[in-house]
Computed example of a mutant assay.
Amino acid sequence: MPKPFFTRLVKYYSSVAAVLRGESDAADIFPNTTDKGGAREQLYVDFLQNHLPSACNAKLGGFVFNQAGEESKQIDVIVSTDMCPQFNVGLKSFACIDGVLAVVSIKSMLDSAGIRDAITNIASVPQHRIDYPWDKIVIDNPMIDMWPLKVIYAIDGVTVETLQKTISEFNHPTQTISKNRLPDVIHVAGKYSLRRSWVDIVHEGRTIPACRYVTMTAEVDAACLAFVVERIQQLCLASRFIPYNFSDYVYRMYGMEPPPI
């Protein structure tokens, strides 16, 4: 039986989710689809900024690039560390992947076409730099190839069965999208979520393999919002022990090859 505080904490996150949904509905006052989407994205940014550690920066997105010059498609929300150089242009921003903790794709209606679009966008996020001398760092490689946390958040969506079917198509061995670039959380507000862990987990005596999606329909909003905040905090903490050097792209801006690490 949870202690009273934890019961109140569930109610708190549920209330936050209700505000997100309610204010998202208010965004319908905007006649332009782009304006509506921007309002919903800003609400989610505000939620993250109000709940993440101050070492995290949640911004309306643009794109993510790596130090080799590869870049993603349009990303709705980007969360970066306070050690990452910022590139803020008006209301939009872009960021180097080595300092990115999470990316979020936000949909008003997560239908089959929206699922494919969101997954394709998230899958375009380039790889973190993984050639660091991990034996000289005080922590083990914290599954850096899986970073960042990849979230799809929707105000409404198709049935969970339809979503699972669409996800299974992307999860098929013949697909070109690698498992480390599939979404980690798919949250349809008030209805259901699909979440996966990067490692095997044991639940009620049963092992759930790494990257296997688990469907949740009970108290979904509180569970998902709390999970996203907790996971980003963990990545933020781990990132403090990785001595990222952001100078490579500066060398390459001028056609020079950066020196080895």
Rank of each mutant, 00 (worst) to 15 (best):
R8K: 14
V10F: 11
K11E: 14
K11I: 09
Y13A: 08
Y13L: 09
R21V: 14
E23D: 11
D25G: 14
I29M: 15
T33W: 14
T33N: 15
K36Y: 13
K36Q: 15
G38I: 03
E41I: 04
Y44R: 08
L48N: 01
L48M: 07
N50Q: 14
H51Y: 02
L52E: 07
P53N: 01
P53W: 10
N57P: 05
N57Y: 14
A58I: 00
G61R: 01
G62L: 01
G62M: 05
V64K: 00
F65C: 08
N66G: 03
V79R: 05
V79H: 06
V79N: 06
S80D: 06
D82M: 06
Q86N: 12
F87W: 10
S93F: 01
S93K: 05
S93H: 00
C96V: 10
L101A: 06
L101P: 01
V104K: 01
S105T: 11
K107R: 15
D111S: 09
S112P: 01
S112A: 15
R116S: 14
I119N: 01
S124Y: 08
H128I: 05
R129G: 02
I130Q: 13
D131N: 13
Y132F: 13
P142M: 01
I144D: 02
D145Y: 11
M146C: 10
L149D: 01
L149F: 04
Y153M: 11
A154M: 04
D156A: 08
V160G: 08
V160H: 14
F170Q: 03
F170I: 04
F170A: 07
N171V: 04
I177E: 04
L182Q: 05
I186K: 00
R196N: 09
P209S: 00
A210I: 08
R212F: 09
V214F: 11
T215N: 09
E219C: 12
V220G: 00
A223E: 09
V228Y: 00
E230L: 12
S239R: 12
S239F: 00
F241P: 03
I242K: 01
I242N: 00
N245H: 07
D248K: 02
Y249G: 02
R252T: 09
M253N: 06
M253F: 15
Y254G: 06
E257W: 03
P258E: 06
